[in-house]
């Protein structure tokens, strides 16, 4: 009996050790990310609307020259607080291809709110050609598509530091503390005051990185807040249901045990 319990504890300990070793081995291969506090990460987490609106500006003025956002529609911007008129105006600033017209020709027209974000390049080959062979990835899902999520994105943007002594960085690449292998093709995109925030928030690199990460967290997971809200209701409901079910079970089994 004792032996059995001992081996059972061994099994449990083994499982926990497995998890820890797994994460340790994983971390050893990857760079330790500067962990941030994100408003949306907790159980009742929500997005920061202000930060996301500023982050959209950062995207539009800095990132959009190379990175697409093709899974997001202009109308979605109303979710982060822009009015319908503002969104129409934003959309109208982009041209989308439409057609064919009655002559069979394709033509360009201003985007409507129903259209999705126009990518800076028509296809990947054009993107590579303009960027020395490197492909700037679409950012719609970036926060979910990388281990570390928002910490990774923030880390990249704030990770352009001087390389350690002796570290070779070939021409055309830049040292980045967070990017795998530390050599990234993207030049540092953020400089202090690169974007003029209309609400007067000082546009430091850290601030812009924070804001654009909040924005990209939303583009990757637009329904997070609804999910959290529903989750709280569902869990509370299930707690009540399970408690009732337990009471029923005990009642039903009362005579048997």
């Amino acid at each position: 009996m004792m032996r059995a319990r001992w081996t059972k504890s061994l099994g449990v300990a083994g499982f926990v050790a497995t998890l820890l070793a797994g994460s340790a081995a994983y971390a050893a291969e990857h760079v330790a990310l500067p962990e941030q506090e994100w408003s949306f990460n907790s159980l009742f987490g929500t997005y920061e609307r202000d930060a996301q609106q500023r982050g959209f500006l950062v995207y539009k003025d800095v990132c959009a020259s190379c990175h697409g956002l093709r899974l997001v529609a202009y109308r979605n911007l109303m979710d982060i607080g822009f009015t319908e008129d503002e969104v129409k105006a934003i959309a109208a600033g982009y041209l989308v291809q439409d057609g064919p017209d009655d002559n069979g020709d394709m033509y360009e027209r201003p985007a409507t709110t129903a259209d999705r974000f126009v990518s800076p390049f028509p296809n990947d080959a054009a993107a590579r050609a303009s960027n020395g062979g490197a492909l700037p990835p679409d950012l719609s899902l970036m926060v979910k598509a990388r281990a570390g999520g928002p910490d990774y994105v923030y880390g990249i943007l704030t990770g352009y530091v001087d390389p350690p002594a002796g570290f070779e960085v070939p021409d055309g690449l830049y040292y980045n503390a967070v990017f795998p292998a530390h050599r990234i093709a993207m030049p540092p995109p953020l400089f202090d005051d690169a974007v003029a925030y209309p609400d007067g928030t000082p546009a430091t690199v850290g601030q812009m990185a924070h804001d654009v990460t909040q924005f990209l967290a939303w583009t990757a997971e637009p329904h997070l807040e609804a999910r959290h809200r529903m989750g709280v209701k569902v869990l509370l409901f299930l707690l009540v249901l399970t408690a009732l079910a337990y009471a029923v079970k005990r009642k039903v089994w009362a005579g048997v045990h």
């Binding site: 299930l238 249901l241 399970t242 079910a245 029923v248 079970k249 089994w253």
Partner: peptide
């Protein structure tokens, strides 16, 4: 009853 509870 027991399965209902387990389901919860």
């Amino acid at each position: 009853a027991k399965d209902y509870f387990g389901l919860g």
